[in-house]
């Protein structure tokens, strides 16, 4: 079993602006001191989140539900390098909500979806076994 994943968020560089970006590549920028796991360059409405030990399984499903949120302007996931066990999700939202809220909503929606799938699956299985025995 892989170890527990950690979600982490980029440090906000300059709040309120979507276009602030530092010129040096992320890998060459100094990592912030208070939390050496965070990456620079985010605003409240636009952020990238890094998930450890997650892959396409969660990445694509999460990307799909977040994209179904009308408050979200952009959402995509990537696995930056196949030999690193990391998955990143980029979320940009319209004004009025934040990227973190959109991520939270996405994770909640995914849980609701799983409940519906389980209910319907068990229902269908009962119907099938009742039909097979009668």
């Amino acid at each position: 079993m892989p170890t527990r994943s950690k979600a982490r968020k980029e440090e906000p560089a300059e709040a309120g602006s979507d276009i602030v970006m530092e010129e040096a590549p992320t890998s060459h920028q100094p990592e912030s001191k208070d939390d050496d796991m965070s990456l620079p360059g985010s605003t409240p409405t636009a952020a990238s989140f890094e998930f450890l030990n997650e892959g396409h399984t969660l990445g694509n499903a999460l990307r799909y539900v977040i994209n179904r949120n009308p408050e979200v302007e952009f959402c995509a996931y990537a696995i930056p390098h196949p030999s690193e066990p990391k998955m990143t999700v980029r979320i940009q939202t319209f004004e009025g909500t934040t990227a973190i809220e959109a991520l939270e909503k996405g994770l909640r929606d995914l849980q609701d979806l799983c409940d519906v799938v389980t209910d319907k699956f068990i229902e269908a299985r009962e119907r099938f076994s009742a039909g097979a025995s009668s």
């Binding site: 527990r4 969660l58 499903a61 994770l107 909640r108 849980q111 799983c114 409940d115």
Partner: peptide, 27 residues
């Protein structure tokens, strides 16, 4: 076979639930 699928759905839900907690803690 059918239990594997039910377990898979539960697994995805648990993944999302654990991450939701972490996102809340992160804020």
């Amino acid at each position: 076979s059918d239990a594997i699928f039910i377990e898979a759905v539960a697994h995805l839900k648990k993944k999302a639930k654990d991450l939701e907690k972490q996102v809340i803690n992160m804020v």
